[in-house]
Simulated scan of single mutants.
Amino acid sequence: MNKAQAILAALGGADNIMEIEPCITRLRTVVHDPSRIDEAALKGAGVHGVMRAGTVVQVVVGPDADTVCMDIEDLL
C-alpha cells in the first residue's frame, strides 16, 4: 500500500471523503463521519500531524502535499 492509499484508508475510505485539497504542507479534507478517522494509522502512514474541527480534518504530510492529494484524487 502506498502513502496515498494508506492515508485514504485511515481517513475512512473513499466514501467518507466529501472534499480534499492540498495547502502547502497539508491536505485539507472534509469528511462525512469524523469517527471513521484512524489517527494511529495516519501516523503509521508517515503524516506529521492531524488537526480536527468537526468534519474538517487537516493532515500534515509535508512538502509533497500536492502529489499526495493528486494520488488520493486518482483513487477517489
Score class of each variant (00 low, 15 high):
2 N>S: 12
2 N>R: 09
3 K>G: 13
3 K>A: 15
6 A>T: 10
6 A>E: 09
8 L>D: 01
9 A>W: 06
10 A>N: 01
10 A>H: 02
11 L>W: 01
11 L>E: 02
13 G>W: 04
13 G>N: 01
14 A>L: 01
14 A>H: 05
15 D>H: 07
17 I>A: 04
19 E>T: 12
20 I>C: 03
23 C>W: 13
25 T>N: 11
26 R>C: 11
26 R>P: 07
27 L>H: 10
30 V>M: 14
32 H>C: 14
32 H>P: 04
32 H>E: 12
33 D>T: 01
33 D>F: 09
33 D>S: 07
34 P>S: 09
36 R>N: 06
37 I>P: 05
38 D>K: 03
38 D>E: 04
39 E>R: 02
40 A>R: 04
41 A>C: 03
48 H>I: 14
48 H>Y: 14
48 H>E: 12
48 H>C: 14
48 H>R: 13
49 G>K: 03
50 V>G: 04
50 V>Y: 08
53 A>K: 13
55 T>K: 10
55 T>S: 11
57 V>Y: 03
58 Q>R: 02
59 V>R: 05
59 V>C: 01
59 V>H: 00
61 V>F: 05
62 G>Q: 07
63 P>E: 12
65 A>N: 11
66 D>P: 14
68 V>K: 11
69 C>D: 01
69 C>V: 10
70 M>H: 15
71 D>L: 13
72 I>A: 07
73 E>K: 14
73 E>L: 15
74 D>V: 08
75 L>R: 08
75 L>P: 06
76 L>M: 07
76 L>P: 00
